[in-house]
């Protein structure tokens, strides 16, 4: 399957990383580069339930029938914040129909981060993606 160019770029970046340590470093760096949410934006409404670490997700939409959804997110834990960054890279700033179509499981496999998607994992990546998909479906 072919991905949008920015997702393909991310996959290519990850392909250069030889082991889990480099992958974790990269994920953490992506998280560090993410602009933090303001304290006011970190509230009960934006908090993603089902995460052991705290995760917040803020969304905006523009356009009509098939609006473009933009997400911003934050977490108090480094690795999770990095996973937030990965999820935003995949889904943010895309049309609702595209968000619906994108298969996060496939992409995370390409990044060798699929271990984080198991429902038994408590980091909440699955909950985060569920929230993004639900917002796209409702848009």
């Amino acid at each position: 399957m072919s991905y949008p160019q920015d997702i393909q770029d991310m996959i290519d970046d990850f392909a250069f990383l030889s082991d889990w340590e480099e992958r974790y470093m990269h994920v953490i760096d992506l998280g560090k580069a993410l602009p933090p949410l303001s304290e006011a934006e970190k509230n009960e409404a934006t908090k993603v339930k089902g995460c052991v670490s705290q995760v917040w997700l803020v969304s905006d939409k523009t356009g009509g029938d098939d609006p473009v959804l933009t997400f911003r997110g934050d977490s108090d834990a480094h690795i999770v914040k990095g996973l937030v960054a990965v999820a935003l890279q995949i889904f943010s700033n895309r049309k609702a129909s595209k968000i619906h179509e994108l298969d996060a499981t496939e992409i995370l496999k390409e990044l060798d981060l699929q271990e984080h998607l198991s429902p038994q994992r408590s980091n909440g990546l699955k909950a985060m993606i569920g929230r993004i998909k639900a917002e796209a479906a409702a848009a």
Binding site: E21, H78, V80
Partner: peptide, 21 residues
């Protein structure tokens, strides 16, 4: 500057089981 969950997840990669929370 680090979250306990980060520490536990990284230690797990080295085969070390600790709790965090």
């Amino acid at each position: 500057g680090a979250h306990a969950h980060d520490v536990a997840q990284i230690l797990d990669k080295y085969g070390i089981a600790v709790r965090a929370g």
